[in-house]
Design a protein around this nucleic acid. Sequence first.
DNA 1: CAAAATCTGTTTGTACACGAACAAAAGGCA
DNA 2: TGCCTTTTGTTCGTGTACAAACAGATTTTG
Lengths: 148, 148
Amino acid sequence: MKTTEMAKNIAEPEIYRLDEQVGFMLRRATQRHLAIFNNLMPDFTPTQFAALAKLCELGPVSQNELGRQTAMDAATIKGVIDRLRKRGYVTTRPDPGDQRRIQIVPTGDGRTAYLERVTAAQEITARTLEPLSPRERGEFLDLLGRMT
Amino acid sequence: MKTTEMAKNIAEPEIYRLDEQVGFMLRRATQRHLAIFNNLMPDFTPTQFAALAKLCELGPVSQNELGRQTAMDAATIKGVIDRLRKRGYVTTRPDPGDQRRIQIVPTGDGRTAYLERVTAAQEITARTLEPLSPRERGEFLDLLGRMT
DNA sequence: CAAAATCTGTTTGTACACGAACAAAAGGCA
DNA sequence: TGCCTTTTGTTCGTGTACAAACAGATTTTG
C-alpha cells in the first residue's frame, strides 16, 4: 500500500497486477474454502449439501424454486438433483396443481445425512474464517454479504 | 441480527442457515463478479485473461509454472493454454534446457489483446467493488487477501 | 554412478456453471 | 374464449476445477 502510493506519486503507468484484483482473490479464497470443505465433508460437494440443506429447511419445493433459493440456474440444479436422487437423498414427484413442476422431497436418508453433517458444515465455516480475528470475521461477512 | 441474538438467549438449537455461510456468500459474490466480467470483457473468460496477463507480465514460462502463478492446477492450465493457442494469443515451444517443459510465449496478437483490455479489467474490479465505500473496499481486499 | 524421488505435461472422469434453444403447461388479457 | 407471454424443466455446448493415474525427463541421494 505504501509502495503503491509512492508509485502513484511519480506517475507510474497504472500497472495491472493480477494478484490485486478482486476476481482473482475471490477465486483463491474459494479454492481454499473448497479444500477445507472437501476435507471435512468428503462425501458431498458444496452445491449438493447446499441443495439438501435448503430442501430440509423449506420442505418440498419445485426444482427451479430450489435452484433459486440456492443460487443455481435451472441447468445446474437439475444435475445436482439428479445426483442427489441417484444417491437416495431426495425423491421427486409430480406437482398435483401444476403439471410442469416437479416437487423435490428429502428422503429419510436425506434428512439424516443433513442433520449428521450440520456440525461439520459449521466447522467448515469456522476454519475458512480462521485467519481472521473474531472482530474481523463479522466485518468480512458483512462486506461480503453486500457484494451480492 | 437482533432476532438471532434473541433466539440465542432462549437456547435455540443452533439452526444452520445456508445464506450466512462463508462458502455460499463467496459463491454468490463470485457469480456477480463473473456476470460483470462477462459484460465488460465478453471475449475472454477470467481464467484466460488471468493466464494471458500473467504471461505478458512474466515473459516466457513453462506451462505448469504459469499455472502456479495463476492458481490453476496442471490439468486446468492445460485446457486454458490450448484455447488461448487455438485463438492465436500464445505459442508454445520446447524448452531448450529441459525436455519435459513447454515454454509458453505470448504472440503479438496476445500482447495487443492484453494491453487493449487492461482498462476494462480495471473497470471490472471497480464495478465489482462498487457496493462498498472507498474505505470499505480497502478493508475488504485486505481481509479477502488474508483468507488465502 | 545407479536407484529412488520428484517434476512435467497428458488423459480420464466427475462435477459445477451458464448461455441458448426448445416444448409443454400455465397465466394474463383483450 | 383464444391468443400471447411467461414459467418450468430439459438438452446441448463450452469452459473451468480438481483428483487420480501415467510416461518420460530430471534431480537427489546413497
